[in-house]
């Protein structure tokens, strides 16, 4: 399971404040803590904290790289912000571009841009692709799978290794009116997405989104994570500092025979 630590995101107040104060220490502590907790990647998202998004993502990347070599997941819907981050990213450590839909009304070529940037950055830089297109987030299973198929097809046509794709079926808050069918639909879509390539494309999701606004955030995240791992999820953007959630990852992977059982199997992270 390749976990992406979600905490370095300008949506969190401590990070927002650190960006405003140019306080590296807060960012660096979060980088080290998440790495120790088992993050394979650290998400880096400027959020709405700064007017200068390009400069800020570079400051974040450089600050983190001063203290750890964990792969970074550059998180922005704007190609220019990703490109700015890539300029200072140490791609030898690995990386992830997060994320691109199949296409957008405002930018039909958006996926090409992300794939090209990753290809140019080097063989260890992967891309998160959303099962979403110019019509928005699909509500049904078939459209999700069809978009995922188009994404895989596009990567193949461009000669981009499908093992470098992390398909994100986009989990939305379960509390949104009429959204309660979506977690189940996503699980069914994931079961099919696995068959789009051999070996299967990676699948990831921004898990915490699911429980936005609910009273039982951690529980909802944990239970759905276990369900999704059973359908082939092999990566997730999560709160790696949530010990109980990490225990669910270890247990689910063990039960799916992806990790060898040992009496101390919870200590894998």
């Amino acid at each position: 399971m390749q976990l992406i630590g979600e905490r370095i995101n300008g949506m969190f107040l401590d990070v927002k404040q650190a960006i405003a104060d140019q306080d590296k220490k807060v960012i660096q502590d979060l980088a080290i803590k998440q790495t120790k907790a088992g993050a394979a990647y650290l998400d880096v998202n400027v959020g709405t904290a700064a007017a200068d998004q390009e400069g800020t993502i570079q400051w974040l990347v450089e600050s983190i790289q001063e203290v750890c070599q964990t792969a970074l997941c550059l998180d922005s819907q704007k190609p220019n912000v990703i490109a700015a981050g890539l300029k200072v990213l140490n791609a030898d450590n690995g990386g992830m571009l997060n994320s691109s839909p199949l296409n957008k009304k405002s930018d039909e070529e958006i996926l090409d841009k992300y794939l090209d940037m990753a290809a140019q950055a080097g063989p260890k830089v992967n891309v998160i692709t959303l099962t979403m297109d110019k019509n928005g987030v699909p509500q049904d299973i078939d459209t999700r799978v069809a978009i995922a198929a188009e994404i895989v097809q596009k990567a193949m046509e461009k000669g981009f290794d499908t093992q470098r794709l992390f398909i994100d079926p986009i989990i939305l808050p379960v509390k949104v009116p009429n959204a309660q069918a979506q977690p189940g639909n996503i699980l069914d879509a994931m079961a099919q997405i696995q068959f789009l390539a051999d070996p299967p494309p990676h699948m990831t999701m921004g898990l915490s989104n699911l429980s936005q606004g609910t009273n039982e955030r951690s529980l909802i995240n944990r239970v759905f994570l276990a369900m999704a791992i059973s359908r082939g999820l092999d990566s997730a953007i999560v709160e790696v500092l949530d010990k109980e959630l990490m225990d669910v990852v270890a247990t689910s992977e063990m039960l799916m025979n992806k990790q060898i059982y040992s009496d101390s199997f919870l200590k894998v992270f």
């Binding site: 060898i260 059982y261 040992s262 009496d263 101390s264 199997f265 200590k267 894998v268």
Partner: peptide
């Protein structure tokens, strides 16, 4: 025994 092998590695690194 692969399960014990893993366990010993965890115990020792712990």
């Amino acid at each position: 025994d692969i399960n014990i092998a893993k366990q010993v590695n965890i115990l020792v690194t712990d």
